[in-house]
Every structure is written in structure tokens, then in C-alpha cells.
Design a protein around this nucleic acid. Structure first.
Lengths: 215, 215, 215, 215
DNA sequence: CATGAATGAGCTTTCATTCAT
DNA sequence: CATGAATGAAAGCTCATTCAT
């Protein structure tokens, strides 16, 4: 029985991932994590060293493959488009699709992580600045160059702002928090339904990116 | 001398506002607040009753006037437009303008609060759900109806999503956290400069709101 | 009733003093201290800030007066002897007497402290090096000069060594630990009896200090 | 390659010896030991059973030969002196010489141990009382009888005190902790230099032992 | 023979809160 | 009106030890 029970490290990571999303890093105690993961309290420090390091492990477990997927899609797009203009929609989808497939992870851990990622970036979390910058900066640079090719009419500042706004709204959509409390009682079952996200999010982001400039 | 030093309650509120933005609610201890405010530790509980209640006070001090300002602008718009179609841009600005004037508060407290508001909504903070719903729900209802008039071609679900996305990106822009770390080394001095925000944010949000539907 | 019960800080200091002597600093937990002092565990950090700071407080409470007493005796000796040669025995007693009167403290706290002082010096405790050097270095300088006057035939190195050895044996005698386990079963009730100490210790130290040089 | 690397047990003993001296028994964790010794954490319990037992092993590895050396010197002295009076200086040197030759151990382990021995005795460590009494009591008894022969004019109590004081100061000198912080900045390179110790220590101890009685 | 994993107990410290004054 | 003192709870972390392999 329970032959499929994941090992200690994995159970800790899974529970921590969920609790960090639900309550935030600070409000999640190691005791909450270890009780739900049914492991000894000291196991966290044994396997990860500290609460901070646990956060980093939770983060990196999923971030590295996610970024790799995005960059792979980007590679493909750039190869296909070669000398032609890159399509904005392709770029947007090259980011959204890997996020969505992570969201559809049957164990639900992936969906948790997408929300954790969004929340962490939006909060500008302390632990993010210190450790994750390396991997993430490659990601940002690649997308910056790609968007530059796709939207050549925008100057550097314009482009930076539009990317900033576009990724903000995408991350927030994935975070699944309803800032307007609109969906709480509506028939729309869940703002976190992946297909809903793509249906409504993509046109919104696209329009914002290609909008004519003011004046 | 020191006639301009605010009283105990106000000093607590000001410091708490800043620290809640900088470190988040959980990571901000009453000791941090009372030390920086140079008041007795027990003063917080004396004046506000609890840390939760302090948060609510911090929040309400600015939220009520802010919502009032927004609704006043909305009243004016609706009066002017009466039977005509409401302009989307007017609606967007009726929200952004009060936020910006708060951001320009010379004591900087207002700017702090706008970030706190954004951060709290994005985090979907526990204390928000419990206490602030009343005032906030009036705000949401008024804007929902106004956008319904301004964008009659959208069905309920479409409209809900677009508002959700639009307010997400606006709140995030005000929160001032750069999810892409794009602005850190660029010549763009600060992503939090209010006028930059309106220059780039409004066209983006407008375009997203009025975008043609997919398919 | 219990009108004479010392206040929280004092109770903590008294118990800590005893336990630090009995078990050493590291082996004494705050729980041991607070349980015996019948105070809340958090009281230590409230009143002293940390375990390290508690140690320093325990130490300084008695060290400052003790050093003051020694230096007062030294002042008197130097005033009396003015141009004459200082008597070695006087110097030795100017240190031993204040230690002994502390040892005879009816509350026994003083006796504890003399042992703590000895033990701490002999262990060369980490906390000693950092904090207590100031006061202590004045003490050392004054005695160094006095012994130089009392033993002018010794060169600097000789004098340093003899003082080192003399104070070592005095501190050890006050520490009351029987390195030879000689007294354990003997009729000598206690190696810590202050008068015994002076009876046997003074001649031993004196002889060592004034011994003819080798060769 | 690395043929000279000692085996696991020895590496643990060597590191433990040093760390026990540097930080004391309680403040030295098994993790510190096993990390520096580059062995598995469980190896300590595997090879020695417990931290207490490790301490005992560290202690006994060197104490047994040291005591044997001292007693051998004592045997020789007593054989030579047979019916004559035993020379005090010979007795003192019969203890100091083995300690010094241990101090000069080229691997420095011996020097560490002499300091550990001194420190442990001066601290009156718990583990000392329980385990080491057997061997040590033989040592004490032999020296007690020898000093009785060498100093027949002293009554039992006098003798016990003088031995107590004499061994105290010798142990402290070997411990190498400068209670007066005199040597820190002086030209005297190190209070732990073995030859310095014998040059200054022996006359001091001798004088104290043979001092005329008070009054 | 040795080790990676795990554990229960305990550590110091900080928390928000209360209360007598 | 305000505060110094005190408190119970809980925090993150480290401890020596055990055990299956």
C-alpha cells in the first residue's frame, strides 16, 4: 500500500509550494509544512538547510524547466521567422503556453507553482532578488530582443513599458487572484481555469502591445 | 518646538503604511513599527486594538477618500454623458487620476498607500476579504455598471474578464514592482514616476479594453 | 508576604550566576534559569536582550564594584608607601581581601561570582574578550605598575610571568575546584572556606612572587 | 596517494581534541567535529557510541601514557633516593617533564591535550568525575605519598593545600590561557612556549611548596 | 564497515498581546 | 492617556542519537 507515496523531500516541496501560495512565505511556518507533509520538523533543515533555501528549492524545481520550455518555443519561432518579422502573438503564446501546460499538471503542483511564481514576482520577494536573477535575466533578455524584432516601431522606453505591463497582466492572470472580486459569485466557475485565461487574456495583452501610441 | 510632529496615532499609521509596503504584513512586526515611530510598543494595541485592526486603519484612512474621489469623478462623467455612450477613456482616467493625485501626496504617504493597496489586492490578503468588502463592493458595482454602458458590445463574462485584466495591470503599475527587472539599470529613472505611468499605462489599458474579440 | 522577594531582573541574575558557575555558560539553558527564577522565559530577552547580554550583566554587576574595591585598596597602599618600597604582601592582600569579602556575601551570590569570575578567566571565555576588556585592562595596568615598584629586581618578562602565575593560582583557589580531588574525603570541610583560602594561599603566592631566580 | 591520512577514528579524535580545547565540550557539536574531520556524522556514534564516550576516548588516549610516564619518573626517583629525603624539585619535574614532552609532540595533538587536560580539571567537568577517577586517583595517591616524604615538616592539611595550589598553577600554565592578558601585546611571543613555561614555572612552584609557614 | 536519512527534544529568540499602574 | 513589565505561544533552527541499508 501507498507504494506511490513520494519521498520526504518531494512531499516537503509539494506542501510548501501550496502553502506558500495560500499564505505567503512569511505566514507559512515550517511546522505547518511538516505537519501536512507528515515529516519531522527537522527534515526541512536536513534536506534544504533553511526555510529560505527551501523556498529557493521550491522555486527552482519548476522555474528551470519552465524557462527552458519558453526559450525552446522562442528558438523555434525565431528559426521559422528568420528574416521575416516576428509575430507578436507567437511571442505571447510562447510564454503563455508553457505556463498553461504547467497549470494543467494533473498533480496540481504545477498550477500552484504558476501562482507562486506570479505572486513572488509581483511581491518582488526578497529571496527572488538574491538567487534567481541569473536564470531569470537570460529569460528577460531573450524576450526583450524578440519583442524588439516584433515591434520595431517602438523605441526602447516604449518597449520596456509595454513588456512590463504585458507581463504584469499575464502574471496576475495566472496568479488567479481576483482584484475586483467580480468572479466570486458569478457563474464563471473559476478565474483559474486555464482555457478561460487564454481565451480572454491573449486578446487583451495583444491589443495593449500593439496599441497606437498616444497623441 | 517640534510643533509639526504628528501625534502618536498618526506616526504609527505613517510608519506602518511604509513598512507594510516594504516588507509585507506578516514580515512587519509591531516592534519595527513602534521603534521607527518612536512610540511605546503597547501604544499600537492601545490605539488600534490589534495588529489586524492597525492594518485596517492604515487601509481605511486612505481608501475611503480615494473611493470617494473615484466615485465623484464617475458621477460627473455619468451626469455629462447622460444618454450618450460613456467614453472608456474617461472611465479609466476617473480611476487613474485619483490614484495619481494620491501618489503625488507631498508627504509621500499617499504614494506608499497606492502601493499598499495594489499589493494587498494582488496578494488577496486575508484582512482584505474580511473587512474591506463593504466599501470596496460599492466601488466595484459602480464601475461595473459604468463599463457596461461604455462597452455594450461585450457580454457579462467578457466584460468581467476585461475589467479584471484592466484593473490588474493598473494596480500592478501603481505597485511599482518591476516584474521583468527591466528598469533597474536603464536610463528610465523610476517605474514609479506618476507621469510615466499615465503616459504608458492608459493607452495599454484602453487598447486591451476595446480590443476586438477573438475569432 | 514575600515582601523581600527580589524583582524579576535580580532573580534572573542571581539564578544565572549560580547556574553559569555550576554548569558553564553553554550548558546552562535559559529554560533552566527561568524555571528556577520562576519567571517567564521571555523575561530574559525582555530585560537583557539575549543570553550573551545576560552573561555580561551577570558579570558586570559584581565586577565593577570588585575592581573598584581593589583599586581603592591599591590607592591607599600607594599613598602610604609613597616613596618607600611597596610591600608585596600588601599588594596580594589588596586583591585577596575584596575577593574574600565578596565571598562572604551572606546571600552567597558574591561567592558564586568569585567562582564565575575565576572560571571565566581560566576558560578564556569568548564573551570576556569582547566586552569586559575595558574595565579589566585598567585593573591589570594598575597592578602591573604596583608590582613593578614592589619587585624592582625583576625584569619585565620575569614580572609578567610571576604575575601571571600568581593570579592564576589565586583565581583557581577562589574557583574552588579541587584539581587533585584531595579534599573530597578529607576532614577539611570545604576548599571554599574563605579563611582557609587566605591562610594557605597567601604564603604560597608570596613565596612564588619573591622567589630567587633560577641559576 | 594520501597514504598518511589517518583513519576515521583517529581523525575524529584529533579534531575533537582541538575543538574541545578551543570551544569547550558543550559548545562543540558533533557536526563541527565530523565536518572538520571529513567523516560522516554517524561515524562518531558508530565508533565511540556517544559524545560523552568520545570525550572519554579523547581523554584516555593521552592520559594513560602521560600518567604512566609520570609514575615511571616517580619510580626512578624513589628508587634512587631510597632512604634519603626526596628532592621537591625532582618531584615537580617528574610531572612537568612528561607534560612538556607531550607539549612538544610534533603533530601538535599532544599540546592540545595538555591544554584539554588542564581545562577539564579546572572546570571540574562532569565527565571527569564519573569516568577518569580510577587512573587519576592512583596518580594522586602516588604523588601525595612522594610529597609527604619530600616535605615531612608539613602536616596533612598543609600538604594537601600546597599540592592543590602547586598543581593548580601548573595546570593553568599548561592551559596557556593568560588570565591577565599581559602577554597579548608583549614581545613574549607565546605564553605556551614549553621552555618558557619550565623556566618561569618551576621556581615559582618550588618556592610556594617549600615556603615557611605563616606566623 | 559505513552512511544517508530521519527523529524527538531542546535551543534561543521573537511574536502579539495583556495588565497594573 | 500612556507605558514598563510581563506572558504564553510560536517561530526557525540545531542538537545528539538511531536505524535501515
Amino acid at each position: 500500500m501507498e507504494a506511490s507515496r513520494p519521498d520526504t523531500s518531494t512531499r516537503i516541496l509539494d506542501v510548501a509550494e501550496r502553502l506558500f501560495v495560500e499564505h505567503g512565505f512569511e505566514a507559512t511556518s515550517l511546522r505547518m509544512i511538516t505537519q501536512q507533509a507528515e515529516v519531522n520538523l527537522a527534515a526541512v533543515n536536513y534536506h534544504f538547510g533553511s526555510k529560505d533555501a527551501l523556498f529557493e528549492s521550491v522555486f527552482m524545481r519548476r522555474l528551470a524547466p519552465l524557462i527552458a520550455d519558453c526559450l525552446a518555443e522562442l528558438d523555434k519561432l525565431e528559426a521559422e521567422a528568420s528574416e521575416e518579422k516576428l509575430a507578436v502573438e507567437g511571442l505571447v503564446l510562447s510564454f503563455i503556453r508553457p505556463c498553461l501546460s504547467l497549470s494543467k499538471d494533473p498533480s496540481r503542483g504545477g498550477a500552484m507553482f504558476v501562482r507562486l511564481l506570479s505572486r513572488t514576482l509581483v511581491e518582488n520577494h526578497r529571496l527572488l532578488r538574491e538567487t534567481i536573477s541569473q536564470q531569470y535575466s537570460v529569460f528577460v533578455q531573450r524576450y526583450s530582443r524578440a519583442f524588439q524584432r516584433a515591434l520595431p516601431m517602438l523605441d526602447t522606453e516604449q518597449l520596456a513599458w509595454r513588456m512590463h505591463l504585458a507581463f504584469s497582466v499575464m502574471f496576475n492572470a495566472f496568479a488567479g487572484n481576483d482584484v475586483l472580486k467580480i468572479f466570486t459569485r458569478s457563474q464563471i466557475v473559476s478565474a483559474r481555469d486555464p482555457d478561460m485565461i487564454v481565451k480572454y487574456l491573449v486578446p487583451f495583452v495583444m491589443a495593449g502591445l500593439v496599441a497606437p501610441m498616444e497623441g
